[in-house]
Each structure stands twice: as structure tokens, then as C-alpha cells.
């Protein structure tokens, strides 16, 4: 039996007296997609940034592949962040370099991990643009010339080019048109399956987690109020808040 890729225990982050998140614990297994839902301010984004090492939690432990992430030297954590981990931001411009071409955006992680052959870097960039359905003729265009949906797909290519194992996503479909969302979700689902990615995805969109997540965590006021199989939590919610959340969604 394999071991969890990420183990979180008793995680807490406070902002002064205010609770960012507290008492969070879970295991993420290889190839598993974990959704985190909750309304704005429920602590889901704080939790994600603590897990990804962008913020330091005040208490608790995070273990990645048997290694204590919080005790790790920064060099090692940043090396992980550009090799085995990936982080997809809600706003593509936070995750992209807007001043350089699409090809350079995809190639950066390769170059950061020692690739020094221009032709091969470019070939890999073209392959990845193709995988995220961006025409290769756009390789030398800057992301500023791309639509929102294309920018988001470019961000995904840039993150996945080094074949990471663990991907953090913060509202990856937020702010996109519904039709563009569907395309992105389909793409993500295919990549998750084909690359065997483990994913933690934060969103407030229950339809997104239903389509993408194996498992769901519901957060409220910095705490996890319910977790379980995604469709079970959505169709048979046990907690009062989850019931309210699920029943608040407008039916189409």
C-alpha cells in the first residue's frame, strides 16, 4: 500500500487574534484530487498558501513524501516548488511572466532546472502549448495578447512542464466565462488522469469540485466542518453549514 503524498496535522494560522485556519488535518494520496470549498473568508486560501509554503503556519505539521516541509531549508522547499510542486493562481497574471513570450513562460521551469539546449526547450514548449490547446504559432507572443482562458491554460502548461506530482490550484476557473471554464475543466481532468497528479483545488464553485474532485473538504470560519467523498458530501451533507451551502446553489 502506498503512502500519502501529503499529510497535514493540526495546522493553524492566525492573524493576531483572528483565526486564518485552525485544526486542519488530512492525508492526500497519490493521484487524488481534493477539493476545498467554503465562502470567502472561510480560510481555504490561507490554508492553501500555508500548504504551498507561501505562508508559515503558526502550528501543526505538513509532511510531503515523508519529508517535514516546515523544517526543510528554504533552498529545498523552493526547489520542490519549481520541480515536484506546481501552483496555479486564480489570476493568470500572478502566475505568468507577462513581459516574456509564451514559449519562455513554459520554458522557464525547464531552464530553472538546468535545461541548456534551446532547441529542446522550444520543442517541449511547443508540445505543451499543444497539450493545453494553444496554437504553436502563438509561441512567441506575450501573454498580454492572450484571452483570459488562454492565459490560464498557459499558466497550467508553465506549471506542468516539469511533470510535478503535487499541484495547488486557487480558483483556477474563477473569472472565466462558463464555456471557457468547461474547456479548462476538461483539460485539467485529462491532465490529472494522464499524469497521475495529486491536486488540492480551492474553489467556491461546487460544480467545479463535482467534476474534478474525488474528495471534498468544507471549510467555515477557518475550520473544516465536513469532509468526505465529493458526491456524498454534496448529495448527502451531514453538517448544518454544508446543507446550507449546497441548498444555496441555484439549480440550472
Amino acid at each position: 500500500m502506498s503512502a500519502p503524498i501529503l499529510s497535514v496535522r493540526g495546522l493553524e494560522r492566525r492573524y493576531g487574534a483572528r483565526i486564518g485556519c485552525t485544526g486542519v488535518g488530512f492525508d492526500l494520496w497519490p493521484g487524488e484530487v481534493l477539493g476545498m470549498v467554503g465562502e470567502s473568508g472561510s480560510g481555504k486560501s490561507t490554508l492553501l498558501s500555508c500548504l504551498a509554503g507561501h505562508q508559515r503556519p503558526d502550528a501543526g505539521s505538513v509532511t510531503y513524501d515523508g519529508r517535514d516541509v516546515l523544517a526543510m531549508p528554504e533552498t529545498e522547499r523552493r526547489r520542490l516548488a519549481r520541480t515536484e510542486w506546481a501552483y496555479v493562481h486564480q489570476h493568470a497574471r500572478e502566475g505568468l511572466r507577462m513581459g516574456v513570450s509564451a514559449g519562455a513562460n513554459v520554458g522557464e521551469r525547464l531552464m530553472a532546472t538546468g535545461a541548456r539546449h534551446y532547441g529542446r526547450i522550444r520543442a517541449q514548449a511547443i508540445d505543451w502549448l499543444d497539450r493545453v490547446e494553444i496554437d504553436e504559432t502563438r509561441i512567441d507572443d506575450r501573454p498580454t495578447a492572450f484571452s483570459g482562458g488562454m492565459q490560464q491554460r498557459l499558466q497550467i502548461a508553465r506549471n506542468l512542464v516539469t511533470g510535478p506530482r503535487l499541484v495547488f490550484m486557487d480558483e483556477p476557473t474563477g473569472g472565466l466565462d462558463v464555456s471557457v471554464q468547461a474547456r479548462l475543466l476538461d483539460l485539467l481532468r485529462g491532465l490529472v488522469r494522464d499524469m497521475g497528479l495529486s491536486v488540492i483545488i480551492v474553489t467556491h464553485d461546487l460544480a467545479v469540485v463535482r467534476l474534478l474532485a474525488d474528495r471534498l473538504m468544507v471549510m467555515k470560519s477557518g475550520r473544516v466542518v465536513e469532509q468526505g467523498l465529493t458526491d456524498q458530501v454534496l448529495d448527502d451533507p451531514q453538517d448544518a453549514y454544508t446543507q446550507l451551502l449546497v441548498s444555496s446553489v441555484l439549480q440550472v
Binding site: E74, T75, R78, R82, R97, V100, S101, G103, A104, G107, E108, R109, L110, M111, A112, T113, A115, R116, Y118, I121, R122, I139, D140
Partner: peptide, 18 residues
């Protein structure tokens, strides 16, 4: 500090691409 110099090659990559 951490010898993260991939970015320098991004600059050179852009040169060749352009």
C-alpha cells in the same frame, strides 16, 4: 542566495526566439 538562475536563460531564450 539560492542560486536560482533559470531566469537569466529566459532572457537569452527571448533573444533567440525574437
Amino acid at each position: 542566495e539560492l542560486e536560482e538562475y533559470g531566469l537569466m536563460h529566459v532572457k537569452l531564450y527571448e533573444d533567440i526566439a525574437r
